[in-house]
């Protein structure tokens, strides 16, 4: 009888623990949406905060975030895919592959604050880029590189050997085969990696605080849209953090709603991708 009781208590604990995760999520979403939703307006999304004009808006941060995402992906995606192709299609198993895989794994274990410090002194000071969106994007691309590499690598591994042999047997060169056969087949895995990377970039703050800074203005001229790359620019998440520090809770929750909305969308897309193409997904949490 004692044993039955012990079993039931343990089972209760298991259920409690599992539902804690559920409650946390629902609680977080509910709280943020209830507090933040009233502050979302067209005005909030399309103007820039200005003391002179008395406006509060996050348009500048939205533009910065888009810059950051596009630029980071533009750097990290080609390098990540290239790296995965090398590891899977060219390199022979051995010390070199082990070194690359070890460092890729190490890279995904380094906390973002360290990336921030490194980005600040390397891209910011040594390369002279200062506090700028470019510095931030370069820093973040190192951070999301493992996500792209790992997901591409897994997708490439799933491509049947016969595809490769078939193409090479017809006299196609290796690069031609990779371009026309491998990459299209591996596309779902690559896209999953990219989506996960976008999630990382959207939520990132510690690595950006001292690299991209906190500017929140919109460019005033056509040339300004290009010049923006070398100007300081805070993403939504950075602005959220700064608003909290200044106790501007309304702005903070407005941004939080926007961010959580994006996170939910990305999660949905990943879910569809994974179930549609039945492939493993490698997040930083589960990706080793």
């Amino acid at each position: 009888m004692m044993r039955k009781l012990k079993d039931d208590v343990l089972l209760c604990l298991i259920y409690l623990a599992a539902f804690l995760a559920e409650f946390l999520l629902i609680g977080i979403l509910a709280y943020v949406f209830v507090r933040g939703f009233p502050h979302i307006s067209w005005h909030f999304l399309t103007t820039v905060t200005s003391i002179l004009e008395g406006t509060v808006g996050i348009a500048g941060n939205i533009v910065n975030t888009i810059y950051m995402v596009v630029l980071t992906l533009a750097i990290a995606v080609p390098v990540g895919i290239g790296s995965a192709i090398y590891l899977n299609e060219y390199a022979r198993p051995g010390k070199v592959v082990r070194l690359i895989e070890f460092t890729t794994q190490t890279l995904s274990g380094i906390p973002s604050i360290i990336f921030g410090l490194f980005g600040m002194v390397f891209f910011g000071v040594t390369l002279g880029l200062g506090y700028s969106i470019l510095t931030g994007a370069l820093t973040l691309s190192l951070m999301v590189l493992p996500l792209i590499t790992r997901n591409t690598q897994e997708a490439l591994k799933a491509v049947p050997e016969s595809y490769r042999n078939g193409a090479v047997g017809m006299g196609a060169g290796k690069w031609y085969m990779i371009r026309t056969i491998l990459l299209p087949s591996a596309m779902p895995g690559i896209v999953t990696g990219i989506i996960l990377a976008v999630g990382r970039i959207l939520g990132e703050s510690a690595a950006l605080l001292f690299t991209a800074g906190s500017g929140y203005f919109l460019p005033r001229s056509f040339g300004g849209w290009f010049h923006k790359l070398v100007e300081s620019g805070g993403t939504l998440t950075i602005q959220l953090y700064l608003s909290m520090e200044k106790a501007q809770y309304d702005t903070a929750f407005g941004i939080a709603v926007v961010l959580l909305g994006m996170v939910l969308c990305l999660n949905l897309v990943t879910r569809v991708m994974v179930s549609r193409f039945e492939m493993p997904k490698y997040t930083d949490a589960g990706g080793r």
């Binding site: 599992a18 539902f19 995760a21 559920e22 946390l24 999520l25 629902i26 977080i28 709280y31 943020v32 999630g199 959207l202 939520g203 990132e204 703050s205 510690a206 998440t237 959220l240 953090y241 909290m244 809770y249 903070a252 929750f253 939080a256 961010l259 959580l260 996170v263 939910l264 990305l266 999660n267 879910r271 997040t283 949490a285």
Partner: peptide
């Protein structure tokens, strides 16, 4: 099927938001 997506979503929430809620709740 209800719990697993919740866990995945928790992983995706930006850390600053955890800080915000910690600070205010």
């Amino acid at each position: 099927a209800v719990i697993r997506p919740a866990v995945e979503l928790l992983a995706g929430i930006p850390s600053v938001i955890y800080g915000v809620l910690g600070m205010l709740i």
